[in-house]
Amino acid sequence: MNRKLLLIAVAVFATTAAKAQSVTYNHDSSKQNQITVMETGTGALSPDLYYSVLHNKYKKSAAAKNKLSFRTLAGINLYNQVGEAEAIDSALVKRAEIEALNVADRQADIAWLAEGEKLNGQMERFRRNIDRIPLSGGTPADKERWTEYYHVYQCAIDATKNAYMPNAQRKKEYLRIYEDVRRQNETLVLFLAKRQNATATSALLNATDNRTLNKGGIVGNAMSRWQESRLAVRGSQPDGNGSNGSGGNGGDGDETVNRGK
């Protein structure tokens, strides 16, 4: 008995579930006509009286404004853009290749390999000349001033090395720095020569101030040199009579000249 009741209950439950999951279809021709007109432009809106009275403007333009025409027009426009898209894609690919080369050119400092040795040599000469400032009579302030110039150029070199620029522009910057350092180095050499000459002149003047002149000794030395020159001149002249060349007329050192008749 219980088994029969259980089977009956299962059958009733299955029947109820099957009815709950069934699908009903109620066809509405007016809605189908409206959707057809909206999508493809075919068919007619119904009921006709309803649309004529309440939506007459929409009724007149609904078939012309269907979605199918817009989809077709959009497809045609998209097809016409295929060529433009391919051209844009090719241009972007070429631009990407160029930018990749630009990035590689900016990251590898090839200009320093060409100009670095020359620039380092000029900077080293500049530094050696700065170290000569105290030896040539310059002041610590003078050395500090020129050292600041050295640091400015070194900072410019480091900034150019780290800059994001093509090697052609980087090389121009290195050459500009080199030319500036060369001019400053020439100016520094002139400054060193001026200080060296001033120190030497000052030393000579200080030595002259402490010197005592012996005027008598100077005059005596001059007279001795004059006597030696006089005797040398008399000894080089012909003297047949054992005297000077005055024809036997001796004197006390006066030279005479014989004039021919």
Rank of each mutant, 00 (worst) to 15 (best):
residue 222 A to K: 10
residue 221 N to R: 11
residue 215 K to I: 10
residue 204 L to E: 13
residue 188 L to Y: 06
residue 193 A to W: 08
residue 174 Y to K: 04
residue 218 I to D: 11
residue 192 L to I: 06
residue 189 V to L: 07
residue 171 K to P: 09
residue 188 L to E: 01
residue 211 R to L: 14
residue 211 R to E: 13
residue 191 F to W: 03
residue 212 T to F: 05
residue 202 S to W: 08
residue 210 N to E: 06
residue 175 L to S: 08
residue 190 L to F: 12
residue 186 E to R: 10
residue 203 A to P: 07
residue 195 R to G: 03
residue 219 V to W: 00
residue 201 T to V: 12
residue 206 N to V: 05
residue 182 R to Q: 12
residue 196 Q to D: 14
residue 197 N to Q: 14
residue 195 R to Y: 07
residue 212 T to Q: 09
residue 168 A to H: 01
residue 182 R to W: 07
residue 176 R to F: 13
residue 184 Q to M: 03
residue 178 Y to W: 04
residue 172 K to C: 03
residue 196 Q to C: 02
residue 177 I to P: 00
residue 199 T to S: 11
residue 218 I to G: 02
residue 197 N to C: 02
residue 190 L to Y: 09
residue 176 R to P: 03
residue 185 N to V: 08
residue 172 K to Q: 13
residue 171 K to L: 15
residue 180 D to T: 13
residue 214 N to P: 01
residue 206 N to E: 13
residue 190 L to S: 13
residue 170 R to A: 05
residue 210 N to Y: 01
residue 182 R to N: 14
residue 220 G to S: 11
residue 173 E to K: 13
residue 220 G to W: 00
residue 186 E to D: 14
residue 172 K to W: 10
residue 209 D to T: 05
residue 209 D to C: 00
residue 174 Y to Q: 14
residue 173 E to T: 14
residue 195 R to H: 05
residue 196 Q to T: 15
residue 207 A to H: 04
residue 190 L to C: 06
residue 212 T to N: 11
residue 197 N to G: 08
residue 218 I to E: 06
residue 168 A to G: 14
residue 211 R to G: 01
residue 172 K to A: 11
residue 173 E to A: 14
residue 200 A to P: 01
residue 179 E to L: 12
residue 218 I to C: 08
residue 180 D to W: 02
residue 218 I to K: 01
residue 210 N to K: 11
residue 206 N to M: 09
residue 215 K to F: 05
residue 168 A to N: 14
residue 180 D to C: 09
residue 214 N to H: 06
residue 192 L to N: 02
residue 211 R to W: 09
residue 179 E to K: 12
residue 183 R to L: 10
residue 173 E to Q: 15
residue 191 F to C: 06
residue 219 V to M: 04
residue 182 R to M: 13
residue 174 Y to W: 15
residue 221 N to F: 02
residue 207 A to E: 06
residue 182 R to G: 04
residue 204 L to G: 12
residue 199 T to L: 06
residue 182 R to K: 11
residue 180 D to G: 12
residue 209 D to Q: 10
residue 205 L to S: 05
residue 183 R to F: 13
residue 200 A to W: 03
residue 203 A to N: 09
residue 202 S to C: 07
residue 190 L to P: 04
residue 218 I to F: 00
residue 214 N to Y: 00
residue 173 E to H: 14
residue 208 T to N: 12
residue 185 N to Y: 04
residue 210 N to H: 02
residue 183 R to A: 09
residue 212 T to M: 04
residue 205 L to H: 08
residue 196 Q to L: 08
residue 192 L to P: 01
residue 211 R to M: 04
residue 175 L to P: 02
residue 172 K to E: 15
residue 195 R to D: 08
residue 175 L to H: 06
residue 169 Q to V: 10
residue 169 Q to K: 11
residue 190 L to H: 09
residue 221 N to L: 11
residue 174 Y to P: 07
residue 211 R to H: 04
residue 182 R to H: 13
residue 220 G to K: 01
residue 187 T to K: 05
residue 208 T to H: 09
residue 189 V to K: 02
residue 202 S to Y: 12
residue 198 A to Y: 12
residue 170 R to K: 15
residue 179 E to S: 15
residue 182 R to L: 12
residue 211 R to P: 00
residue 219 V to P: 01
residue 196 Q to M: 11
residue 199 T to E: 15
residue 200 A to K: 03
residue 179 E to Y: 13
residue 213 L to F: 04
